[in-house]
Computed example of a mutant assay.
Amino acid sequence: MRSDVITVQTGSRPTVRDITAEAQAFVSSEGDGLLHVFVPHATAGLAIIETGAGSDDDLLTAIDALLPTDGRWRHRHGSPGHGRDHVLPAFIPPYATVPVLDGRLTLGTWQSICLVDTNGDNPTRQVRFSFLPG
């Protein structure tokens, strides 16, 4: 197994950040196997979705509808509504696994690996890539 960590700047607002290029660069010298992607944070997740056609903004809108930033949350430190950020990984998990064939991610035509971060209090994230040879 080979593993590496990248740092991703997500900023101070909720964001969906495409990390497919970084993932592909990590596996490009590999053969067949699995890429496992993990975010070691309690307030971020990973999604495999289409980006660039509005789906990333639609995802943030859906998160806001499902997990609003209001006073309902018992977890209350940080920005107002921050408790929802701690619930996010139950809906958008902090991990994803993608098959790799001959050093290429086998994503569908419109699929991208995206870091989903709704926590503006923590603008710097770590993402671990692990390659498991087949």
Rank of each mutant, 00 (worst) to 15 (best):
S3F: 03
I6V: 15
Q9N: 08
Q9W: 05
S12D: 04
R13W: 06
R13A: 14
V16A: 08
V16L: 08
R17E: 09
R17M: 05
D18T: 00
I19V: 15
T20N: 09
A21F: 06
A21D: 12
E22K: 13
A23L: 04
Q24E: 15
F26C: 00
V27P: 03
V27T: 02
V27Y: 04
S29F: 08
E30A: 15
G31D: 13
D32S: 13
L35I: 03
L35P: 01
V37H: 08
V39N: 08
P40N: 04
P40V: 01
H41C: 07
A42Q: 07
G45E: 11
L46S: 02
A47M: 03
I48C: 07
I48R: 09
I49K: 07
E50D: 09
A53R: 14
S55V: 09
D58E: 10
L59P: 11
L60M: 12
L60I: 10
A62V: 11
L66G: 04
L67T: 01
P68K: 09
T69I: 00
T69R: 08
D70I: 05
D70M: 05
G71K: 10
W73L: 01
H75A: 00
H77V: 11
H77Q: 13
G78F: 09
G78C: 06
G78W: 06
S79I: 02
S79G: 01
S79Q: 12
G81P: 04
H82R: 04
G83L: 00
R84C: 03
D85K: 01
D85V: 01
H86M: 09
V87M: 05
L88D: 03
P89M: 05
P89G: 09
A90V: 05
F91Q: 03
P94A: 13
Y95H: 15
T97L: 07
V98I: 15
V98L: 14
V100S: 03
D102C: 07
G103Q: 02
R104C: 11
L105I: 09
L105M: 08
T106Q: 14
W110G: 08
Q111R: 01
L115M: 06
L115N: 03
T118I: 07
T118K: 04
T118W: 02
T118V: 03
N119M: 02
N119L: 01
G120Y: 04
G120R: 00
G120L: 04
N122D: 12
Q126R: 15
V127A: 04
F129C: 10
S130H: 10
F131S: 02
F131T: 04
P133R: 15
